[in-house]
Amino acid sequence: MFFFNKPKKQRLADLIPDGYIDIHSHLLPGIDDGSKDENNTLTLINSLKEYGFSQFITTPHVLTGVWNNTRAGITGKEEATKLFLNQQGLTMPFKAAAEYLMDDTFLNLLKTEPLLTLKDNYVLIEMSYLNPPAQLYDIIFNLQIEGYKPVLAHPERYLFYHFKHEEYGKLKRAGCFFQLNLLSVTGYYGKGVLDTAKKLLDEGMIDFTGSDTHHERHTEAFKSDVLLRDTTSLIQALNKNSLFSY
Rank of each mutant, 00 (worst) to 15 (best):
L200T: 01
G187Q: 10
K198R: 15
Y148G: 13
K198V: 01
F177I: 01
F160D: 11
H162T: 02
P155Y: 05
L183H: 05
H154E: 03
V151P: 14
K149R: 15
Y188L: 02
Y188C: 03
E166W: 08
G169R: 10
G175V: 00
H162D: 02
E167Q: 11
R157Q: 08
C176F: 03
D195E: 13
Y168R: 04
T186E: 12
H162I: 00
E203W: 09
L182R: 13
K164P: 02
V193Q: 11
E156N: 04
E166Q: 12
H165K: 14
G147V: 09
A197M: 05
K149M: 14
L194M: 10
P150F: 00
L183Q: 08
L171E: 04
E203D: 12
A174D: 07
H165N: 04
L194N: 11
H165Q: 14
F160G: 07
K191V: 07
F177L: 13
Y189L: 01
H154C: 02
K199P: 00
R173K: 15
E166S: 13
E167H: 08
Y161T: 03
G190I: 09
F177C: 13
F160P: 08
E167A: 05
F160E: 11
L182M: 15
V193F: 04
D195M: 07
G187P: 14
A153W: 09
F178V: 01
H165Y: 06
C176R: 08
H165F: 10
L171N: 06
S184N: 08
G192H: 10
V151A: 05
G169D: 13
G190P: 10
C176I: 02
L180Q: 13
G169L: 12
V185W: 06
L152V: 08
Y189H: 09
H165C: 00
F160C: 09
R157M: 06
D202K: 13
H165I: 08
L194R: 10
Y188N: 10
A153T: 07
E166C: 00
K172Y: 03
G190Q: 12
K199D: 08
E203R: 12
A174I: 03
H165D: 03
S184G: 06
Q179L: 01
G147H: 15
T196K: 05
P150V: 00
Y148S: 13
L200N: 01
V151I: 01
H165E: 12
G147Y: 12
Y188G: 07
L183T: 02
E156K: 04
Y158H: 11
G169P: 00
F178E: 06
G190A: 09
T196L: 02
E167W: 04
V185T: 12
V185M: 12
K199G: 01
K172A: 01
S184L: 07
E166Y: 12
K191G: 00
Y161M: 14
V151Y: 05
V193N: 09
R173M: 13
V151S: 06
R157F: 03
S184Y: 03
F160Q: 15
D202M: 07
Y189F: 09
L159G: 09
Y188Q: 12
A153I: 02
L182Y: 08
Y161Q: 06
E156V: 00
Q179D: 02
K191R: 14
D202L: 09
L180V: 10
T196Q: 04
L201F: 07
G175Q: 06
L152A: 11
K191L: 11
